[in-house]
Write a protein that binds this DNA or RNA. Structure first.
Lengths: 144, 144
DNA sequence: CATAAAAATGTTCTCAAAGTCCTGCGAATA
DNA sequence: TATTCGCAGGACTTTGAGAACATTTTTATG
């Protein structure tokens, strides 16, 4: 479904939202541990998210990554589009180059419904929504 | 969604179902052309499908691949499970090793619905269903 | 101002999936 | 029974995502 990068991006964002108390920043190392992901790889993804203003960053001592209210309230779709592009919403399920309702592959019509429900789900759920589940101990970000 | 192998497997199966008039076989070369895929790679996938009885094969002159009635009436899910495994139905959307309703990732509940609709779609649609669209000229297997 | 901490940047390494190539073997038919 | 066509299947190459490493830049603070 998502690329590894995108999985990490989503998990990292939720993790930052969760740890963010006040304006405090979270360091890469802590994030990587918290979501059980390779540190350097996560660092690179966070840079990308930061450059595109999906999250914020502070250099220097006590620096790290953080999110403001507006960022926390963004739909998860924003992250997905940024990291994986819109392929998940547009690509043909059978890999045809030009597959559309006017020139569909055999599975197009059926798969269109799936894509819509995916889009819907990613649009209506924000980082905050998923973070709330975490805070309420109704979900976890990593397992052993 | 699917691996390239799986895309080719589905397209090839639909193509064979479509070309199959009577008991005639379709050669690899023709299949590869018809679904716009690398011939040798398709050959390998078709061997796999044939070994697992999802399609049939005939050696020698006028040989090739074909499908009987029972095979054509199988749900597409059979092919997907054979080539890609059940990951598409079971894997965690955020890549957690042990993600379940009793120990869910934040997106688990929402994504569960998507997975169910995918399973449903792949179960209720047979090769024949998709082939029918092709025959009715309401779909194509490759584009330029 | 010096120093240390942490993000930013860019390069390189690794590995599995995708794709290609090659040779052997079996079946059909003239 | 020999010849031809096409499957069987292993081995190899390519490609790109994922991951690790090294260096630079920025900033807080003593």
């Amino acid at each position: 479904m998502f690329s590894k990068s995108c999985e990490y991006a989503i998990k990292a964002s939720i993790f930052i939202a969760q740890k963010r108390e006040g304006v405090q920043c979270v360091r890469v190392k802590e994030i990587a541990k918290g979501i059980n992901a390779p540190e350097h790889f996560v660092a690179k993804i966070l840079q990308e998210l930061s450059r595109k203003k999906v999250i914020s960053s502070m250099k220097g001592p006590n620096g790290g990554f953080c999110m403001n209210e507006a960022q926390i309230n963004k739909p998860v779709l924003d992250i997905v589009l940024l990291i994986d592009g819109d392929g998940i919403l547009n690509n043909c399920v059978l890999g045809l180059e030009h597959c559309s309702s006017s020139n569909p592959c055999p599975m197009h019509l059926e798969y269109q419904k799936i894509k819509l429900s995916i889009k819907n789900m990613l649009e209506k759920n924000t980082i905050r929504d998923f973070n709330n589940l975490l805070v309420a101990k109704k979900a976890v970000l990593f397992t052993n």
